[in-house]
Design a protein around this nucleic acid. Structure first.
Length: 1019
RNA sequence: GGGCCCGUAGCUUAGGCCGGUUGGAGCGCUCGGCUGAUAACCGAGAGGUCCGGAGUUCAAAUCUCCGCGGGCCCA
């Protein structure tokens, strides 16, 4: 009875993978792989939660398989690796999807529809594609616990988030301020940067040069103006200051207008940057030059007197480094209500604030007619006219620039200051930087590059969103005394509430909005601020909120900080930052110690995949034709994971062909012969490596070297280096050299020590290789393992994924042997080159090859000359010293080929009659083997041979008949005559006889084979 | 507009930190060979402005600067 299950040579990997998925399911292999390591060292991983309200795309598949690889590897290395799945469920994108569905697009419409119903819709929608996500995750073999995931909308999760915000609140880092945000006046909605980025268009806007009149103590004859430039005239209603660069040079220039016809506006003394004098259209005279800082605090008259200004000074010159001289006049109009930098600089300089525009983009009632109630973008023309009338418009131009529009309704966006709650990240900058120091970034440049730079210029975190579906901001304000209170738990909420809180309260809006707290100060009613929080804060809280910390402490204690996280590069300022930000604010420690940033998956033309371009690869379609292992291997080997990948289904198929098929065929070769021979590794495992031949020791040495290199590469997260090394090993070393070179050892029929060595070696290599490859290609390795390990041993672990990762055995690494083998293969190459040059095919045996090389090189190679003989097909290999080189070089009998700088070889190119006969016979054997294969004969089937040929060939056949019979499993060889119908190169299949006429060189040879009974019943 | 990354044969890429024979592979192509595990493999050949330009140097794919193209993030 054979010990192994036979296989078919062509494998349907898709079917194989489905079977393996069933096996894992049935045997709960994933759970067991984790559980059996309990008590081992922890390797902590945090899943970056995807949103399941859209379909997973190839990029998600990449991160999933990379996570899987690392986690499987660490598990096999003995670490206890818990893998909790997670779902990101809140946020504006979710709301927008629901709005689309409901056919509405503004906040008032949502309120009219009902927040309760709206949020329920949001909640329902976030798992709309959960099934697809779960399926895709399973299908690629990503082992993660999706039965018990963390979900950011669950009360436990929200409660942990609340706790963390209260920690931040208690540290005094949570404050209320203004934030200038991109805002759609029609939808009355703040847009996320992602949405803004979608809607840029090139448009022409008015660009105006406005003269701000400088206030002066004594009335002088000539008025002095600051010349400022803006492309949004309507924002002039919110002007608070003018900014100049402190160190650039400015001038006072008197403009001389020759022709006074209607050009009165241009007269006067203007202040502007010297390098921007080009903007003046008239002749001028420089009166004075000075640095920008000399202008500081210079007061000017407000353009408009309408707006209320609160909280500080206004209408003076300030200095700021952000002022550039690329365009405009070097004097920048500052309106804190409409620009982020404007707002920041006013806050810094303690200037006032004015908001002349209401939330739907119209001027407020503070602004008198005709501007009152007008939509700001429509007001530009009118404002320009007003300025002209008052002679303070220097000139007007058109200006082409890209400006953002609402991607939903097409309205121009306004940058608009809204009230917002902030986390004071700027005060934590040093802590952020210190914590970043402790993180290993892959690729390294991110640490001080994109991420480090970002931290250097960190801004306060605008936490609140005036929206509906999100974690409610846990701040209550007393309507009587204005006292603010931050609630840190559900328990606290109950204690503080004026009316009983339902036991099953959903912490979302609108329910939470109904909870009124009692003010500690005055006993008044405290109501929650209406905001929800940025969903990035949600996911940034995952390290503790997924364990409901601190309300439950045990799990968190052992799972923080994370040893490893990985996501794509776009998360640098996304999740990678929100994790660090939250953790630094709450715990002041880094939340992860190693972070691997992956490149993006681009389409085959190198362009980003996006819905609008229609170039997104549908992974469901992909999985109908491509095996998960092939896809994984493609992703792992194609290049550094930290760089973008051009996605190509064609390349996946090539990977399957090159790697998976070769791996499979190596395995197939083994089981095929091991089955025939009923080889059982358990009976032979006492043969030590030292007892085996050089080829066996070589492949074992290579395997151990490989193991060492693979582990080192994975530890550096150089996945492609590890995978490529394995691929080289499988394709070159194992398949194309070891197995090809060792084939004959497996063909021997009798019991034989050398054959046992070969079997055992190949078996051991395959088993180790399976273990080594298991994290990369979990399906096919499992299949192989099930057959060749678990299939023969009750004691074996039930899955390759329950095994330990191989560790290199240094005592089995023989660097000298590996080097020698490399040298031999170079000799073989050179030998073949010499044959090719001489026009002698390899099947023709030759007398000898003479290798001219150094003594020490020779010593290492001499033990491997058998290989050289066979590969080059010569009877002898001779080594000679350099001094004899010239002797061979002049001989016409020898063909020369260079091996390396110091080594060359000479091939004897004069076969004698005997050798020529042997060559002929080898050709015949080759034809017969081909014929056996043609008719799919069993490997062991015996045949009878009939032949017809000329005398010369006949003599060769006679002389080598034993050889022919041995090679082709023939029991008889008889002369015969071709059947009349069989002409040259044409075959006839009469009963059990297969015949064919051949041309070998210039000889015509007729061959017929007749299968006899199978050899399975051995003689 | 700013920051970071990438650009090597038709395609996928090695090399780049640390400059030094003629820039290596694989797929594909042409020719020849080999083959009872492998739609595999081996040998030879065609195919390169190493994105472009400038600089440093005895010497640049490699270092520096300026562009161009792609990607990401921020405006």
């Amino acid at each position: 009875m054979p010990y192994f299950k036979r296989e078919t040579q062509k494998k349907d990997f898709l079917r194989l993978e489905e079977d393996i998925l069933e096996l894992w399911d049935k045997e709960k292999t994933f759970k067991r792989s984790v559980d059996q390591r309990e008590g081992g060292d922890k390797f902590v991983f945090v899943e970056g939660p995807p949103t399941a309200n859209g379909l997973p795309h190839p990029g998600h598949i990449l991160t999933r398989v990379v996570k899987d690889l690392i986690l499987r590897y660490k598990t096999m290395r003995g670490f206890y690796v818990q893998r909790k799945a997670g779902w990101d469920t809140h946020g504006l994108p979710v709301e927008i999807e629901v709005e689309k569905e409901l056919g509405i697009s503004s906040k008032p419409e949502i309120e009219k529809y009902g927040i309760e119903k709206f949020n329920q819709k949001c909640k329902d929608s976030v798992f709309r594609y959960e099934k697809e996500w779960v399926n895709a995750t399973k299908r690629v073999g990503f082992w993660i616990d999706m039965d018990d995931p963390y979900i950011t909308f669950e009360n436990d999760y929200i409660e942990s988030v609340w706790w963390s915000l209260k920690e931040i609140w208690d540290k005094g880092l949570l404050y209320k301020g203004h934030k200038v945000v991109p805002f759609c006046p029609r939808c009355e909605t703040t847009l996320s940067s992602h949405e803004v980025a979608q809607g840029y268009q090139d448009v022409e806007d008015p660009s105006v040069y406005v003269k701000f009149k400088v206030k002066r103590e004594a009335e002088e004859s000539e008025p002095l103006y600051l010349l400022a430039w803006t492309t949004t005239p309507w924002t002039l209603l919110g002007n608070i200051a003018l900014a100049v660069h402190p160190s650039h040079t400015y001038v006072k220039a008197r403009v001389n207008v020759k022709d006074d016809g209607g050009a009165k506006d241009k007269e006067g003394i203007l202040i502007l940057a010297e390098s921007r004098l080009d903007v003046l259209e008239d002749e001028y005279e420089i009166l004075e030059r000075f640095a920008g800082k000399d202008l500081e605090d210079l007061k000017y008259e407000p353009l408009f007197e309408y707006a209320k200004i609160e909280g500080g000074e206004a209408h003076k010159v300030i200095t700021a480094d952000f002022v550039t001289l690329d365009e405009g006049t070097g004097i920048v109009h500052i309106a804190p209500a409409f620009g982020e930098v404007d707002y920041e600089v006013c806050r810094e300089k303690k200037l006032g604030f004015s908001q002349p525009v209401n939330s739907n983009g119209h001027f407020t009632h503070d602004i008198p007619p005709p501007l009152e109630g007008m939509f700001v973008k429509d007001a530009d023309r009118l404002i320009i006219d007003m300025l002209t009338e008052r002679s303070i418009l220097y000139k007007e131009e058109r200006y082409l620039h890209s400006y953002p529009f609402c991607w939903r309704c097409g309205s121009p966006l306004l940058y608009y200051a809204r009230e917002s709650w902030f986390i004071a990240m700027t005060t934590l900058r040093d802590n952020l930087l210190a914590n970043n120091e402790r993180i290993n970034w892959y690729p390294e440049h991110l640490k001080y590059g994109r991420f480090g730079n970002f931290l250097d210029d960190i801004e306060d975190w605008a936490l609140s969103r005036e929206r509906f579906w999100g974690t409610p901001l846990n701040i209550w304000i007393c309507s009587d005394c204005g006292q603010e209170y931050c609630v840190g738990s559900i328990k606290e909420l109950r204690e503080k509430a004026k009316t009983p809180v339902p036991s099953d309260i959903d912490l979302h809006r609108p329910y939470i909005d109904d909870v009124v707290l009692k003010c500690d100060e005055c006993g008044g009613d405290m109501r929650r601020v209406k905001d929800v929080i940025d969903c990035w804060y949600d996911s940034g809280s995952a390290p503790f909120a997924q364990w409901h910390y601190p309300f439950e402490t045990e799990k968190f204690k052992h799972n923080f900080p994370a040893d490893f996280i990985t996501e794509a590069i776009d998360q640098t300022r996304g999740w990678f930052y929100s994790l660090l930000g939250v953790s630094t604010a709450v715990f002041d420690v880094p939340p992860y110690l190693n972070v691997l940033s992956l490149g993006h998956i681009l389409d085959e033309n190198g362009v980003k995949m996006s819905k609008s371009k229609g170039n997104v690869v549908d992974i469901n379609v992909l999985f109908e034709t491509e095996a998960a292992d092939a896809l994984r291997w493609y992703l792992f080997t194609t290049g550094p994971l930290t760089e973008d990948i051009r996605f190509s289904a064609q390349a996946i198929r090539e990977k399957q062909k090159k790697f998976l098929n070769t791996l499979w065929n190596s395995y197939f070769f083994f089981v095929t012969y091991a089955t025939i021979d009923e080889f059982n590794p358990q009976e032979k495992n006492m043969i030590s490596v030292e007892q085996r031949n050089a080829m066996d020791r070589w492949i074992i040495s290579r395997l151990n070297t490989l193991t060492k290199d693979v582990i080192a590469a994975i530890e550096r997260f150089e996945i492609h280096v590890a995978a490529r090394k394995i691929e080289e090993f499988v394709v070159n070393d194992l398949s194309n050299w070891y197995i090809r070179r060792s084939r004959r050892r497996f063909w021997i029929i009798e019991e034989n020590f050398d054959k046992d060595c070969a079997y055992l070696t190949l078996y051991e290599v395959l088993v180790s290789l399976c273990e080594l490859l298991a994290p990369f290609v979990p399906f096919v390795t499992e299949h192989i393992y099930q057959n060749i390990v678990r299939g023969i041993s009750e004691d074996a672990r039930e899955s390759v994924h329950l095994c330990d990762y191989p560790s290199p055995d240094k005592s089995l690494i023989d660097a000298e042997l590996e080097a020698s083998m490399e040298f031999v293969s170079k000799l073989v190459e050179a030998g073949r080159r010499a044959r090719s040059d001489a026009g002698i095919k390899i099947r023709q045996p030759l007398k000898e090859v003479v290798v001219i090389c150094d003594r020490d090189k020779r010593e290492n190679v001499e033990r491997l000359t058998g290989i050289l003989k066979e590969e080059v097909n010569v009877k002898e290999v001779r080594f000679e010293d350099k001094v004899l080189e010239s002797e061979f070089a002049v001989s016409e009998d020898y063909k020369r080929a260079d091996v390396d700088e110091e080594t060359c070889l000479f091939l004897d190119c004069c076969p004698d009659k005997n050798l020529i006969e042997e060559g002929l016979v080898r050709d015949i054997v080759r034809r017969i083997q081909g014929m056996r294969k043609d008719i799919d004969l069993e490997y062991t089937a015996k045949i009878g041979i009939t032949y017809a040929c000329d005398e010369e060939v006949k003599e060769a056949i006679h002389n080598f008949s034993d050889y022919i019979c041995d090679e082709t499993l023939a029991v008889s060889m008889e002369e015969g005559t071709p059947t009349p119908s069989s002409s040259e190169e044409e075959t006839t299949g009469s009963e059990h006889i297969y015949e064919k006429s051949w041309k070998i060189g210039d000889k015509a040879v007729y061959l017929a084979i007749k299968p006899l009974h199978s050899l399975a019943e051995k003689d």
